[in-house]
Design a binder for these strands. Structure first.
Length: 391
DNA sequence: TTGGAGTCAATAGG
DNA sequence: CCTATTGACTCCAA
């Protein structure tokens, strides 16, 4: 029962100075683990087994990520525990990441080793109800420290007593002497980066562009950027993020569909409703001349043209997309994880013979997925520009 | 280099 | 406070 020197609480005293270099670089596979100072996080695991999480992840049987997150959410809310505390002390993740993870867990088989880690930690945490108590204690301690702090320093001028946690995921390479004093407010060289916030119209335009071409060529990206008046990198990042998030949504719907509707609690957390296809406005006009040399024409109307929204089309087909639930089961550590029934029973329902010709509105997403596949085929076929391969 | 997976961290709402 | 969203960044593999 490692009380562990963890605490992880501390201030969020503004930033340090400018940049935040590389961080993380979570442990290398140095399994010098034995007692407990092996992993940064406490690893809520009873004494037995001196395995590092990575080892456990590697040996872990398939876990039901959906059931796990469901249970975690339940436990957290029931006990008034926040994602921040849970994330920082149990998972080694920030609040935002936890929120995302709990709201949209990817199916186990789609996760990389790294991605499985948080789920293994959650499962481990759930296995011992005493862990909840510990977290609650921690919460109290944090609150106490907080009260103390603000009480003592009446005026203000508080300071920093970073109760450095045992989890040193914050082990940045900035041992800089925190001279958090003044300034840092209206720096002119804007060494703080304002954080880009795309306007709704810009997002719409990008989504439209995505529907036509999930993988725009550098040239197209360049055009989009100039038409929308955004940095090229922003457009690139947007596509990366959007693809990634769309993909994730597909996984989720896949899971829910496979989980079959037990039917009892009518309410589904998901709001599967299709996105509004509102083709609103068109920001600014433009007229980017185009078709310069290599005249592979480019569709314009990226900004205006309300067009698009063609759904259906692709017959049935559908691609592999796997999703084959495993069967292996069993395993030494299988017992280590108390996975048997506990949570599994929660959201598990009939799944196998679930084939309803009726479909949901995930058609659009599947279509995008198809484009994705097409893109890869093109790429494999000819390394040149995608051209218009229409038959 | 490009794309995917994971995350971070700022920020918008409650 | 807390949670959800999301642009940007790091790592890594092809």
């Amino acid at each position: 029962a490692p009380e562990s020197p963890l605490s992880s609480a501390e201030e969020s005293v503004k930033s340090q100075q400018e940049e935040q270099m590389c961080r993380a670089s979570i442990q290398e596979p140095s399994e010098t683990s034995e007692s407990q100072p092996g992993t940064p996080l406490p690893l809520p695991l009873p004494g037995h087994s001196g395995l590092s999480i990575q080892e456990m992840v590697a040996m872990s049987p398939e876990l039901d990520t959906y059931a796990i997150t469901k249970k975690v959410k339940e436990v957290l809310t029931d006990n008034n525990l926040g994602q921040r505390l849970f994330g920082e002390s149990i998972l080694g993740l920030t609040q935002g990441s936890v929120s995302d993870l709990l709201a949209r867990p990817k199916p186990w088989h789609k996760l990389s080793l790294k991605g499985r880690e948080p789920f293994v930690r959650m499962q481990l945490w759930l296995n011992d109800p005493r862990n909840v108590e510990k977290l609650m204690d921690m919460k109290r301690m944090e609150k106490k420290a907080y009260m103390k702090r603000r009480h003592s320093s009446i005026g203000e001028s508080h300071s920093l007593e970073t109760t450095l946690s045992g989890s040193d995921l914050t082990q940045g390479a900035s041992p800089q002497n925190l001279s958090q004093q003044q300034q840092q407010q209206h720096q002119q060289p804007q060494l703080k980066k304002p954080r880009v916030v795309l306007a709704p119209e810009e997002k719409e335009a990008l989504k439209r562009a995505y529907q036509q071409r999930p993988y725009p060529s550098p040239k197209t990206i360049e055009e989009l950027a100039s038409q929308l008046n955004l940095k090229t990198s922003t457009v690139i990042n947007w596509f990366h993020n959007y693809r990634s998030r769309i993909r994730r949504e597909l996984f989720i719907e896949e899971i829910q569909a496979a989980a079959g509707e037990g039917g009892s609690p009518s309410a589904r957390p998901g709001k599967s409703g299709g996105e509004g296809d509102n083709s609103c406005d068109g920001t600014e006009s433009d007229s980017t001349a185009e078709g310069r040399p290599s005249g592979s024409e480019e569709r314009k109307g990226l900004l205006e043209s309300p067009s698009l929204s063609h759904r259906d089309e692709e017959g049935e087909a559908e691609f592999p997309s796997a999703s084959g639930t495993s069967r292996p089961r069993g395993g030494i550590i299988d017992s280590l994880f108390g996975i048997p029934e506990s949570i599994s029973a929660a959201a598990t329902a009939a799944a196998p013979p679930c084939r309803n010709p009726k479909d949901s509105s995930l058609r659009k997403k599947k279509a995008a997925n198809l484009n994705n596949i097409i893109h890869r085929l093109e790429k494999a076929a000819n390394r040149d520009e995608p051209h218009e391969w229409e038959f």
